[in-house]
Structures are given as C-alpha cells and as structure tokens.
C-alpha cells in the first residue's frame, strides 16, 4: 500500500490541496475566503491534469530536432483554457460579493442570514 502511494504521490498532493479548498469553502463564513477556497480547489484540478501529461524524461512540447520525447500537450491546452475561464468566474463571484456587501454591509455568512431572518420576521 505504501509503495502504491509513493508511486502516485502527485495524486496525493492533489487530494490534499483539493480537500484544503473544500474545507475553506465549508468552514469559513467569510465570502472572500470562500472564493479563495474555490480557487485552491481549482488549482488542484489544474495540477491533476498537468501531472497526467508529464512523461518522465520528457521535455516541454516545443518541437526541436534535439529532443525525442515530449510531455503530452493536450492537458496543457485544456488547462490554459480552464485557467482563463477560472479567472472569469472568480471575477463574477467577486462582483457578487461586492454587490452583497452593498446590500447587507457585511461579508459574513451568519450576519447575512441574521439580517435575512430579521427582515422576514418584520415583513410577515
């Protein structure tokens, strides 16, 4: 079992990062920290894909007569797209955070829930 884990150490690092991101998203009430947790989760997926493409002894996939063995370029392309899309979603999430702050004056989840409950109690 330990030997198997040692051969797959890249996935182990990915799982640790992924669970760190998930923990931040669940356990933190602050909305900016939740966005950062989502970003950490996302980076772990990037690392997973890029480590799929790595070939030991290979080099970066830029063709040259000096090299024979290249790493897999396809995950690189997919993750290039994913990084840019990830920043677009982060921008949208942060815009929503700013909008929530304008409306409620706080970024803490429990305070927002309290204000919501008070408003509903007052209305009905």
């Amino acid at each position: 079992m330990l030997e198997l884990l040692a051969l797959h150490y890249n996935y182990l690092a990915v799982v640790v990062l992924m669970m760190t991101g998930l923990y931040v998203v669940i356990a933190n009430g602050n909305l900016v920290k939740k966005v950062i947790g989502l970003n950490i989760f996302q980076t772990s997926v990037f690392i997973l894909y890029i480590s799929f493409g790595k070939r030991l002894g290979g080099t970066a996939p830029i063709l040259s007569p000096d090299f024979e063995l290249y790493s897999n370029p396809l995950p690189h392309v997919l993750i290039l797209t994913a990084i840019v899309v990830g920043v677009a979603t982060t921008a949208l999430a942060l815009a929503l955070v700013i909008r929530i702050h304008r409306g409620y004056g706080t970024l803490e989840e429990d305070e927002i829930e309290r204000i919501e409950a008070e408003e509903q109690g007052g209305a009905g």
Partner: peptide, 8 residues
C-alpha cells in the same frame, strides 16, 4: 514549469 507545462 517543473511538469513541462511552460505555457500553462
């Protein structure tokens, strides 16, 4: 970079 993905 260490994983050969320089563009990424």
């Amino acid at each position: 970079v260490a994983l050969d993905a320089v563009d990424v």
